[in-house]
Measured scan of single mutants.
Amino acid sequence: QVTPQEKEAIERLKALGFPEGLVIQAYFACEKNENLAANFLLQQN
C-alpha cells in the first residue's frame, strides 16, 4: 500500500512515459527517492 504522496510521485514518474510496473520497481529500489528513480529510469533508455 502506498501513501497519497507516494502515489503522486509514481504518477509523475509515469508521466515521463514509463510503464507503471517499471516506475514502481524503480521508485522502491531507489528507497522512494523520486529524483533518483527518475534518473534511473531515464538512464535505462
Rank of each mutant, 00 (worst) to 15 (best):
A9R: 05
Q43R: 13
I24A: 11
E31M: 06
E31F: 04
L42M: 13
E11K: 07
E11L: 08
E6W: 04
P4S: 13
A29D: 12
I24H: 14
Q44A: 06
A37K: 00
N35T: 12
E11W: 03
L36Q: 14
I24M: 13
R12F: 01
Y27M: 08
R12W: 02
G21E: 10
N35E: 14
A26P: 03
L13N: 02
L36V: 10
G17D: 07
Q1L: 05
F40N: 14
L36P: 01
N33C: 06
E8R: 09
F40W: 14
T3H: 09
E20K: 06
E20H: 12
E11H: 09
G21K: 15
N45H: 15
N39A: 10
K32G: 07
Q1N: 03
V23Q: 01
A26G: 03
K7W: 10
K7S: 11
F40M: 13
Q44L: 02
N39P: 03
R12G: 03
I24S: 13
F40G: 03
N33D: 13
G21W: 06
Q25R: 08
K32L: 04
K7A: 14
C30P: 01
Q25D: 10
L42I: 12
F40I: 08
A29K: 10
N35D: 15
K7T: 12
E6G: 08
I10T: 02
E20R: 06
A26R: 05
R12P: 01
F18R: 05
A29S: 09
N39M: 05
E6C: 00
Q25T: 10
P19Y: 09
L41D: 02
L13W: 01
A37T: 14
A38C: 09
P4T: 15
A37G: 01
Q1A: 05
A26L: 02
A29E: 10
Q5C: 06
E11G: 07
N35V: 10
Q5A: 13
N39S: 14
T3P: 08
E20I: 06
E31S: 07
A9P: 02
P4E: 14
P19N: 13
G21Q: 12
F18K: 07
T3G: 07
Q25E: 13
I10M: 11
Y27S: 01
A37D: 01
C30R: 05
Q43K: 15
F18N: 05
I24Q: 14
Q5Y: 09
E34K: 02
L42Q: 15
Q1T: 11
F18V: 06
Q1Y: 03
F18M: 14
E31Q: 09
E20F: 03
E34T: 04
N39H: 06
N45Q: 11
L13F: 01
N39D: 07
E31I: 00
